[in-house]
Design a binder for these strands. Sequence first.
DNA 1: CCGGTGACGCGCG
DNA 2: GCGCGCGCCACCG
Length: 103
Amino acid sequence: MSYRRIYATVRRIPRGRVATYGQIARLAGIPRQARQVGYALAALRDGDADAVPWHRVVNAKGEISRRATPGSDELQRVLLESERVAFDSLGRIDLRRFLWRAG
DNA sequence: CCGGTGACGCGCG
DNA sequence: GCGCGCGCCACCG
């Protein structure tokens, strides 16, 4: 399948907000396939942040999911902080404040 | 075909 | 709130 629907949904996340993998999966019409969302985002090339704001997708606990290649998650945090998304001392985002409520 | 592998999520203790 | 186990399912070798 193509990741078209996934990317289209991620593009809807507004600046300064975040969505979870599971949430994107549901909105994209593929419920219970949160892993596919991560897989799709992993397929993006570096520099695609303009077209697809992949950094606005975090896990259900509000934290940045660890990648195979360490260090790339640092970039995600920097990008989020640059749009005023706050992290607590444990590196977690308060989803009550920053979760994107679609619709 | 088959088994291993995830940028995941949820229920349980 | 935390770790653990298990379910999920497309991909890949």
